[in-house]
Simulated assay, not measured.
Amino acid sequence: MVMKSVLCFGDSLTWGHDPETGARHAYEDRWTSVLQKSLGHGVRVIPEALGGRTTVFDDHTSAADRNGAKILPTLLQSHAPLDLVILMLGTNDLKEYLGQTAIAAERGMRRIVQIIQNHDFGKTGQTPSILILSPPHICKTGDKEMDDFMSLKRKEVKKLAARYELLADETGCGFMDMSTVAKPSPVDGVHLDAVETRAIGAAVAPIAAAMLLI
């Protein structure tokens, strides 16, 4: 049996940021791990996630390069051959100090899709299928100052699902709306507790299996 490979490209929601501790969820609680267990030994799930990662925008507040478009070609090459790439990005594109909107995030995601679909994989295999996940919504925390600061971001993230679904239709990608699957913790309004994180992996598994034809 030929092993199939899935690259999960995302931000802190894919990395597994625990809102209660600020650390990382246990390996078994990360949605990529739940996906791996569900798909079985014939599939290799590769988590490639970074807190604060954007689609295509530079953010110089971190020691690590958060621009997804810059690192993605290298990852495509280093992990090839790939059968499926799962994308969950966009929340960080909406940061107020980056001045971004849902329109800009959709354009960034479009560029990410273009990079994958036009990448020269050479003899390492054919272009992988793509599954776009729109991120969970942002909730209020009870901290008025923080909630006021996040108000625009809360409004814009709700627009991503419709834009990403249209993008998926236009580019031949799969699509799932994670706001129908998981809700963030009111601790910080953005990140997911272990139960909600695992729910994403369980929801994505049957769609990924269908796209992998397993």
Rank of each mutant, 00 (worst) to 15 (best):
V157M: 08
T32F: 07
D143V: 12
P186M: 10
D147M: 08
R24L: 06
A69I: 10
S78A: 13
N92R: 02
L72H: 06
T32P: 06
D177Y: 01
I112N: 04
G22P: 03
A209F: 03
G16E: 08
D59K: 04
S33R: 10
R24C: 05
W15S: 09
M176G: 02
G10W: 06
H17I: 04
T21E: 05
M176W: 01
A161D: 12
W15I: 01
Y97R: 07
V56F: 13
Y97A: 02
A49C: 07
Y164V: 08
R163P: 00
I116R: 01
F121R: 01
T32V: 07
V113T: 02
L152Y: 03
A63R: 14
V157P: 10
L35C: 01
V85F: 06
L75I: 06
Q114T: 08
A194I: 12
I130W: 02
G90F: 11
P136I: 13
I130H: 00
D11H: 11
E106C: 09
L87R: 05
E28G: 10
T55K: 01
V43W: 01
T101C: 03
P81W: 10
L7S: 15
L212T: 10
K95T: 07
Y27R: 15
H137V: 15
S185Q: 05
A26G: 08
Y164R: 08
P81S: 11
G16Y: 04
N67W: 03
A23T: 12
A161R: 09
G189D: 09
A105K: 09
W15V: 06
G22M: 04
S33A: 14
R107H: 10
Q36T: 03
A210Y: 03
Q36K: 11
V113H: 00
M176F: 04
A26Y: 08
E156M: 08
A26N: 09
A80H: 04
V181P: 00
R110Y: 10
L89Q: 12
M176V: 07
A102K: 13
G201C: 04
D193Q: 10
P135C: 01
M176Y: 02
R110Q: 14
K158F: 03
K95Y: 11
